[in-house]
């Protein structure tokens, strides 16, 4: 019988991360990771002055 382990939040990283692991007989059978926050920078930058991109995308991750 597979056992599912969910780790949320995963800390000491930038962003919002959840890890799900399926364990069977002491071995990892399957695993999923999901980022749980999205802003949509790419969609927002469409139609903007291209020089904005350097300023804005540096705010994608501040670490």
């Amino acid at each position: 019988m597979a056992k599912k382990i969910t780790i949320h939040p995963v800390t000491r990283i930038e962003g919002h991360l959840t890890i799900e692991v399926e364990v069977e007989n002491g071995k990892v059978k399957d695993a999923w990771s999901s980022g749980t926050m999205a802003r949509g920078f790419e969609a927002m930058l469409i139609g903007k002055d291209p020089r904005d991109a350097s300023y804005v995308t540096s705010r994608f991750c501040g670490v």
């Binding site: 969910t6 780790i7 949320h8 939040p9 995963v10 800390t11 000491r12 930038e14 919002h16």
Partner: peptide, 13 residues
């Protein structure tokens, strides 16, 4: 504090 705390998962929550 998600970025700097040592605990993760249910312990942190």
């Amino acid at each position: 504090h998600m970025t700097i705390m040592a605990a993760a998962g249910e312990v942190a929550e």
